[in-house]
Each structure stands twice: as structure tokens, then as C-alpha cells.
Design a protein around this nucleic acid. Structure first.
Length: 348
DNA sequence: GGATCCTTCTTCTTCTTC
């Protein structure tokens, strides 16, 4: 509102000064002296401007510019001053980082040995290996931590800008509450899903009989993914820890199951904004590839997973978006993950 | 029981015209 008032007030001043024939002409601040004179004269005697006979073509656009209400009276300088007032000092967008790099060592995504004889039956309850960190052992960083600490300058810039704007809108406390609520919803959604997938029933069965058991906040998300759940079968792992045997990192996979018959690492996400394209999910595909690579090297899992699936659920029940990651795509993201991992190690 | 960890999310130009 404050910015609007300032901008409207500025435009009003320009209009008044021009129509009163004054010599104040903010539009001319970046123009030459001759332009300024033209501006002044045109403003003071519009009907008999001496410039109309001298150099009419040259000043046509200038006249239009000054007289038009569509032109903002703001200059980049005043806009920046306003932004600084509202959001703090302006940080320039960092130049995009050329990322044609390849990892120094291309660690294999899949285990070398053949998996034909190690196929295990897909019956039985899903595995759930809980996280147990070794006391006093060497520190093993997590996928989330590594991704968080190797964000690109662009990502950091946009995230910080978003945060600044949210705090300006909601206040410090309001922002804290907002983010806590986002996390809470995500956690509730994951718990409900875990419950459904562990029990081996479908959401339709559950929603008919046990819907009241789930917090009302997650019902929309469950409705959102109900069509995806119909295509899920052979759930093998839920919220289970995976650790890479040589690359020394760990994480917790949301789910390993078949989606339309293809064995996938599945990552469930909640989002307020629609994410119809894979590119809308930022680092999520890298996260999925990192989990898959770890699982493939992990002795606790006797099978390999080459594909991925990112499911974005919506609170209002809008059908979720499911982004499938082919084995080729997973390999590409595996390379990106290896780069991020190298970057993380270099920081230390 | 307390402390710590993993995870849960958040980003992508901006203005005019119809």
C-alpha cells in the first residue's frame, strides 16, 4: 500500500507540474540538457512549441512519454530505494553458473554384480530400517544436508528474496508460524501415507471406514493422490534408511514400490503451488537419484532400483502430479548428485 | 529423559492488453 501511494503521488506530481507549465521534469533526469529544455518548453507552451517547427520528429516520443499516464514516474534509482525500504538492501542476481561440469569420479549408479539370482519375492510386509547413527563413529552426512549446503547462488538468491518478502508480509512471527505449518502438513501427510501403505489397504477402503482417524488437514492431500495410489503395488520399503557403502552418505527413502509395474523410489511431496512440470520440483529429482544410488549399494537391500517417481499432492484435493524418472534420467541426476557431493566434500 | 539427526517446505521476469 505504501509503495502504491508513493507511486501514485509521484505520478500526480508529474501531471500537475507538467500541466501547470512548471520546469520540474523527473523524466528528463537521465536525458541530455537539450532534451531537458525541450521538455520544459513543451510543458510551458504546448500549442506554440518552437520545437514543433524545429525538430518535431525528434521530440514526438518525448512528448508522448511526458504526457502519457501510462509511463511510471519512477526511475530505477527510486524503485531500488523503495525496494530497500520495503525489503532491505537489494542483492543483485548472481550470474548463472555454467554447469557443463562432470564429476571427477563417475561412481556406478547400479551394483556391478548381476541381480537375476538375487531377486527376492515381493510378498510380505514392507521393510523399514530405522536410522541408527553410530555413537562416536565417523560422521555420515545426509542427502538433505548435502543438497542444502550446495545450493547454487541463484537458488540462495531466490529463496532469500522469497523469505524477505514473506517476512515483510507476515512479520517474523507470522513467517515462523507459516513455515512450521508447512512442515506440519508435510509430516501429517507422510504419516497418513505410511499408515495406509503399511497396512496394504487402499485409500478408498480407508476413507470409507477410517477417514476420521486421520487429521482433517491431510484429507485433501489423500484425495489428491488417490488416483496415484491405485497404480501403486508391491510396496517393499517405507521410510527406510539407505546408506551408500563407499560414498559415505545416508538418507531416508519415503517409499520403494511398483508404480504401473515399474519398481521406483517414490518421493511424496506436498505443495501449495501447482507443480505440473519436473522442472518445478527443483532439487527433488537429485534427491531421488541420491537415494536410489545409496539403496543400490546398500547390503540391506537385495535388489536394484533404476527408476524414480515424484508425487506432488495438493491440499484442495486437486489430482496430484506424478513425475516419472526413467532410468536414463536417473543416471543424469546421479551425475548431478555426484557433483554436489564433490562440492560438499570440497567445502569441508 | 535429553540431545541429535533426518525429514517435513520455501525459488524460476514482469508488464500490458483483451
Amino acid at each position: 500500500l505504501q509503495v502504491c501511494c508513493v507511486r501514485i503521488a509521484n505520478m500526480f506530481i508529474v501531471k500537475r507540474v507538467v500541466s501547470a507549465g512548471g520546469s520540474f521534469a523527473p523524466h528528463c533526469t537521465s536525458l541530455s540538457v537539450s532534451h531537458f529544455s525541450a521538455c520544459h518548453c513543451l510543458a510551458s507552451s504546448r500549442r506554440h512549441s518552437p520545437y514543433s517547427s524545429v525538430d518535431r520528429e525528434r521530440y514526438t516520443s518525448l512528448v508522448k512519454s511526458v504526457m502519457s499516464s501510462r509511463v511510471s514516474s519512477q526511475t530505477p534509482e527510486t524503485l531500488q530505494a523503495e525496494d530497500e525500504h520495503m525489503y532491505g538492501p537489494v542483492v543483485r542476481t548472481p550470474p548463472p553458473r555454467p554447469d557443463m561440469r562432470v564429476p571427477k569420479t563417475l561412481h556406478p549408479f547400479l551394483r556391478c554384480e548381476t541381480t537375476e539370482e538375487t531377486q527376492e519375492p515381493e510378498s510380505g510386509p514392507p521393510v523399514r530400517i530405522s536410522l541408527k547413527r553410530e555413537q562416536g563413529g565417523s560422521f555420515v552426512p545426509s542427502v538433505t544436508r548435502i543438497l542444502q549446503q550446495t545450493l547454487s547462488p541463484e537458488q540462495i538468491f531466490y529463496l532469500e528474496r522469497w523469505k524477505r518478502r514473506m517476512i515483510a508480509e507476515l512479520g517474523e512471527d507470522g513467517f515462523k508460524e507459516y513455515t512450521q505449518n508447512l512442515f506440519r502438513q508435510g509430516k501429517l501427510f507422510h504419516s497418513a501415507l505410511e499408515d495406509i501403505l503399511m497396512s496394504g489397504s487402499t485409500w478408498k477402503d480407508k476413507s470409507l471406514s477410517e477417514a476420521p482417524k486421520y487429521p482433517s488437514e491431510v484429507l485433501g492431500y489423500m484425495e489428491s493422490i488417490s488416483h496415484i495410489l491405485e497404480d501403486i503395488s508391491a510396496v517393499r520399503a517405507i521410510e527406510s534408511t539407505v546408506q551408500h557403502d563407499t560414498l559415505n552418505y545416508l538418507g531416508i527413502v519415503d517409499c520403494v514400490a511398483r508404480y504401473r509395474g515399474v519398481l521406483c523410489i517414490i518421493d511424496w511431496k506436498t505443495s501449495d503451488k501447482p507443480k505440473p512440470f519436473l522442472s518445478n520440483t527443483y532439487d527433488n529429482p537429485i534427491q531421488v537419484a541420491a537415494y536410489a544410488g545409496a539403496l543400490n549399494s546398500d547390503e540391506n537391500y537385495k535388489y536394484q532400483v533404476e527408476n524414480g517417481l515424484i508425487v506432488v499432492a495438493y491440499k484442495d484435493g486437486t489430482p496430484a502430479h506424478a513425475h516419472q524418472l526413467s532410468s536414463e534420467l536417473m543416471l543424469e541426476y546421479w551425475k548431478t548428485w555426484l557433483l554436489r557431493l564433490e562440492e560438499f566434500r570440497e567445502q569441508r
